[in-house]
Simulated assay, not measured.
Amino acid sequence: MISPIVSTVEPILLVGGGDVDNAALRRALSRYPNVVAADRGAEAVLAAGGQPGAVIGDMDSLCDAARARLPRGVIHRIGEQDSTDFDKCLSRIAAPLVVGMGFLGQRVDHQLAVFTGLVRRPAQPVLLIGPEDVVTLCPPRIALDLAPGTRVSLWPMTEVTGRSEGLHWPIADIAFAPWRVTGTSNMAEGPVTLEMDRAGMLLILPASGARMLEDALRAAPRWPA
């Protein structure tokens, strides 16, 4: 078992090396005092006026100028190449919630690797925030305070079944799988409750629902480690 580098009872802001809106990141830095950067994500944190408490990754992309601005002991180089920087960070963070920025809206292969990381470590709740969407791995049960008409997309990463209340198209009795049936562009008819039988379903909502989804994740039960 890998020992955590960062452990906290408060949510952690994890910043990746993808595109991050500077103003949005500044707001997030004021909300989340515990900040971890995935390799080159440290550059975005510094540019927004923040200071990461830890920088974790293989350190193949962090520029020398950013390195020089980081205090001694902040950089944690993980040299193996069998996992992504995102996965390296998740495996070394212990927190009630990880809020990720800089992981959506970038290269498709990087984004797919991040989604795989969510499924690989289901016991760690993660909320990914992008310019258009927020994404999380569905917990065993989650209650969402959604307005009628809100887009609710469900994307299976494996074979998974579940139940819903409040969706325009209920999901009971559907055997989801990425090669068979997916659940994109469903719609809320009001507050929504989702239950999943196993870890493997991505929940995708409009970015405007980030704060609501954060509250819902913090109240939801976790998958076992």
Rank of each mutant, 00 (worst) to 15 (best):
M1A: 14
S7N: 10
T8A: 13
E10V: 04
V15E: 11
G16F: 04
P33Q: 05
N34V: 15
R40P: 01
G50C: 08
S61T: 15
S61I: 11
L62T: 12
C63L: 02
D64G: 00
A65V: 13
A66K: 10
A68H: 13
R69I: 01
L70P: 12
R72D: 15
R72M: 12
V74S: 11
V74E: 11
H76E: 14
G79P: 05
T84A: 05
T84L: 05
D85I: 11
D85S: 08
D87H: 07
L90F: 04
L97Y: 06
L97R: 09
G100D: 04
M101F: 05
M101Y: 03
M101Q: 13
M101A: 06
V108I: 15
A113R: 08
V114F: 14
F115E: 07
T116C: 09
L118S: 04
Q124M: 13
P125N: 06
L128G: 03
P131W: 00
P131C: 06
V135C: 07
V135S: 04
P139R: 05
P140M: 02
P140E: 06
A143M: 00
P148T: 00
T150W: 03
T150P: 01
P156V: 06
T158C: 13
T161C: 12
G166V: 06
L167F: 06
I171K: 03
I174Q: 03
W179M: 07
R180P: 01
V181I: 14
V181W: 11
V181Y: 07
N186Q: 09
E189G: 08
G190Y: 02
P191M: 00
M196T: 10
D197N: 12
R198Y: 00
I204Y: 03
I204R: 03
L205N: 01
P206R: 02
A210M: 00
A210Y: 03
R211N: 02
L213G: 03
L217R: 02
P224A: 12
